[in-house]
C-alpha cells in the first residue's frame, strides 16, 4: 500500500485515554489507574475529531486505551463514528464492560485481553484483573451477536498457559486469536528482565500456535505473524501503514515503537495531520530511528518518550 496516494487513512487507532482500571505488568502504553495523560482531549475536542474522521471517509477505527470505556465520552465517540459509517473495533480488558453500550452501532469486533486461563496467572499479569469478569464479558459480547477477538500477550508469567487460553478463546466463540512476541514498550520495557520469555519458551509457544492453527482451521483464526515487533517494523519501513495512531491528548504518533509524534490534532485538522504523517515517513530522523530499531530492538523501550517532529527546526524532507 502506498500511503502517498491515499486521501485519508484507512484506519485510525485512537487511544481514548491512558487511564485504566488495571495495572498490567506488560502494558505497552504505561497505563494504570489514575494515569490519564495530562491534557487528554475533552468531550468537545474528541467529538470534533470523530466528526473529522467521519468527514474524511475513514472506513475503520480502533478505539483503544488505556481502557477506552473509562473515557466519559466513550459511548458518544463510538456513536458519532458509527453513525458516520466508520466501522469500529473496541479493545477492552473486559473487567467492567457492558456490550449494551454498543447496541445498534456498526461494530467490526470487540477485542478482549485474556492473558491467562486461570485467575492466578491472569491476575498476576493483569494486576487488579478478574478473569471471571473478562470471560463473562466475552460471553456477553458473543451473546449480543458481536464478533469477538481475543488477544494474548505472552510473558514469562503466562506463556505456559497459552494453549489453555487458545482453547478458552475457541470455547467462548472468538473468531480470531491475536498474539505475537511481547512488545518492549511502556511498562513491559521497564519490567523486561522479569517478563521477557526465553527463546525456548517462544519456540514451544510457536509450536503450540502452529498446532492450534491447524486444529481450529475454519473456526478460529490464529494471528501471530509477523511474530515480533521488529519484523513488523522492518516491513513498515518500506511500506508504512495507512493507520493513524492518535494519542489521548490528540497528538499523532508515527508508530508505536518509535518515539516521534508528527502532528497535534488540537491545533491541526485531521487531514493536515494525515499529510504530516505521510511526510514523516520520509523524515531523516524517522529513517534513522527505524535503522536503529532494526539494529537494536531494545530501542523501542524509549518509544514512549515522545519527540515532536513538527516542533523542532524544520528539516527539509527528502522523498
Amino acid at each position: 500500500m502506498r500511503i502517498e496516494a491515499f486521501s485519508s487513512p484507512t484506519m485510525v487507532t485512537w487511544q481514548l485515554t491512558r487511564d485504566c482500571d488495571l495495572a498490567c505488568l506488560h502494558c505497552c502504553t504505561d497505563s494504570a489507574p489514575g494515569k490519564a495523560l495530562p491534557g487528554e482531549l475533552t468531550r468537545e475536542q474528541a467529538l470534533k475529531l470523530a466528526g473529522e474522521i467521519v468527514a474524511a471517509g475513514v472506513p475503520y477505527a480502533m478505539i483503544v486505551g488505556g481502557e477506552p470505556t473509562l473515557a466519559p465520552h466513550f459511548a458518544e465517540v463510538c456513536k458519532t463514528l458509527s453513525d458516520g459509517g466508520v466501522l469500529l473495533k473496541i479493545e477492552t480488558n473486559g473487567n467492567n464492560f457492558d456490550p449494551a453500550t454498543l447496541k445498534g452501532l456498526g461494530i467490526r469486533s470487540v477485542q478482549i485481553s485474556l492473558d491467562g486461563a486461570s485467575q492466578a496467572v491472569y491476575g498476576r499479569q493483569r494486576v487488579n484483573g478478574v478473569l471471571e469478569r473478562a470471560v463473562a464479558a466475552c460471553r456477553s459480547v458473543v451473546a449480543a451477536g458481536l464478533p469477538l477477538e481475543i488477544t494474548f500477550a505472552p510473558t514469562r508469567l503466562n506463556i505456559f498457559e497459552a494453549e489453555a487460553v487458545i482453547d478458552l478463546a475457541a470455547k467462548l466463540g472468538a473468531f480470531r486469536f491475536n498474539t505475537g512476541q511481547l512488545m518492549r514498550l511502556g511498562t513491559a520495557a521497564r519490567l523486561w528482565d522479569k517478563l521477557e520469555p526465553s527463546k525456548a519458551d517462544y519456540a514451544a509457544f510457536l509450536r503450540v500456535l502452529e498446532r492450534k492453527e491447524r486444529e481450529y482451521a475454519g473456526k478460529m483464526e490464529l494471528c501471530y505473524k509477523p511474530f515480533s515487533l521488529d519484523e513488523e517494523m522492518a516491513h513498515r519501513a518500506f511500506q508504512p501503514s495507512g493507520t493513524l495512531l492518535v494519542l489521548p491528548d490528540g497528538r499523532v504518533k508515527v508508530a508505536a515503537p518509535l518515539p516521534f509524534t508528527c502532528a497535534d490534532l488540537k491545533s491541526q485538522t485531521f487531514l493536515e495531520s494525515w499529510e504530516a504523517y505521510k511526510k514523516a515517513w520520509a523524515d531523516p530522523r524517522v529513517r534513522t530511528a527505524l535503522a536503529d530499531l532494526a539494529a537494536d530492538p531494545g530501542a523501542s523501550a524509549r518509544a514512549n518518550q515522545w519527540v515532536a517532529l513538527h516542533e523542532s527546526e524544520a528539516i527539509p524532507v527528502v522523498v
Binding site: M1, A5, F6, S7
Partner: peptide, 9 residues
C-alpha cells in the same frame, strides 16, 4: 478493495 480504492480515488 472498496475502501482502499475509494481513498486513492
Amino acid at each position: 478493495d472498496f475502501h482502499q480504492d475509494r481513498l486513492v480515488g
